[in-house]
Design a binder for these strands. Sequence first.
DNA 1: GTTTATAAACTAATTATGTTAGTTTTGTGC
DNA 2: GCACAAAACTAACATAATTAGTTTATAAAC
Lengths: 208, 208
Amino acid sequence: MVVKSRRLNRKLVLAQAAQLADAAGDVQGVTLAALAQALEIRAPSLYNHVAGLEDLHYGLAVYGVRQLLAELRQAAQGKVGRAAILDMAAAYRGFARTHPGLYPLTLRAPEADQAELMALAQEFLQLLQLVMASLGLEGDEAIHAIRGLRAILHGFAALEAVEGYKMALNLDESFRRLVDVYLDGLVRADATGNASAPAIGVATSPQG
Amino acid sequence: MVVKSRRLNRKLVLAQAAQLADAAGDVQGVTLAALAQALEIRAPSLYNHVAGLEDLHYGLAVYGVRQLLAELRQAAQGKVGRAAILDMAAAYRGFARTHPGLYPLTLRAPEADQAELMALAQEFLQLLQLVMASLGLEGDEAIHAIRGLRAILHGFAALEAVEGYKMALNLDESFRRLVDVYLDGLVRADATGNASAPAIGVATSPQG
DNA sequence: GTTTATAAACTAATTATGTTAGTTTTGTGC
DNA sequence: GCACAAAACTAACATAATTAGTTTATAAAC
């Protein structure tokens, strides 16, 4: 006999919600009714663990960013410079494909009162600053480079998610070329001494 | 006395919905009840003009893509190559900023039965192929380049939309650098004779 | 100008979803 | 075993999308 552990907690609720979201391919597919049913409780009981739909989405954002960050770290593990970025790029794209429901939530900018998400956003930025530094980019240069990289990664992932993409094989090459071209340009622009003051520190925006 | 023309039509309904969506900053903000109220009718009467919420969103997608396409064409008017792309990039970003509700709908891949949207997607692709050709890129090279450009444009627009961005000034430079670096890389990679067969025609996917 | 047909409005009612209030159950620590 | 707190429950409500059936109004035909 499987013992139903009853007595849920927030983590279990979020895990189930994440699973439903990815299965549905969209967070909108996760209704409180569906989530409650999957957990074998009634919908109002969910309010013991999440403060409502908005809080559920916030929780999923934290859940998603934490996982994404872990996968990016693992991908870059022991590497520096271009190699680190290429592997992180692949991991980022992989996460977006594997988690079509969760991924879009990872983009939400943290509000002032969302300490947990804000801390994760900081870690995210620091990770990217680290690899950019290993490419020789620092300060404002690094901020611009990070913004560009994030735009590329998210843009590709998002377009990949919306369209059917009949020609799957070519997609990998499109992605490789895009990242390659950008990284080529980054180091080249840096070598040419392109614009901007050298440093002063870290951006005030945790989003980079 | 202002004569209330009564007797709506689909175009008027879509225009009002687009306005509400952009005002709300999100299509989700457009409920049938709110839309009906803005049009001074009751919600069920909307069904005389749109087949439901899904059809409303489809109509808005067509509405949005048509407008975006027009603005991109105007931006590229009389220009070729890099200049054309730079101005189109600025126009694209401008559209996304000006139409936060409408813009995300323009990404929807057309279904097989959505002739109007599919035709617009084709036009969109052709426009991009034209400017890529003026850069010296054709065939598969152009497809990869277009995918990359769209990823960059959408990625930047999307990230810009979600975060507050305290440092507004730097944003323009981030965008300029990103597009610059990509275009530099594109022509450089092409000059080096990078991979891929020269041509054979046009992609089968209308999304590029 | 009246008639008539059709498009477009309306009211009423149904279903689904999120949410709140108040009550009962259940598990854990003493 | 008891008491308290957490977590489940039922009941009820508000909002939203949608359908059915009815009335109104405009525009064309006579």
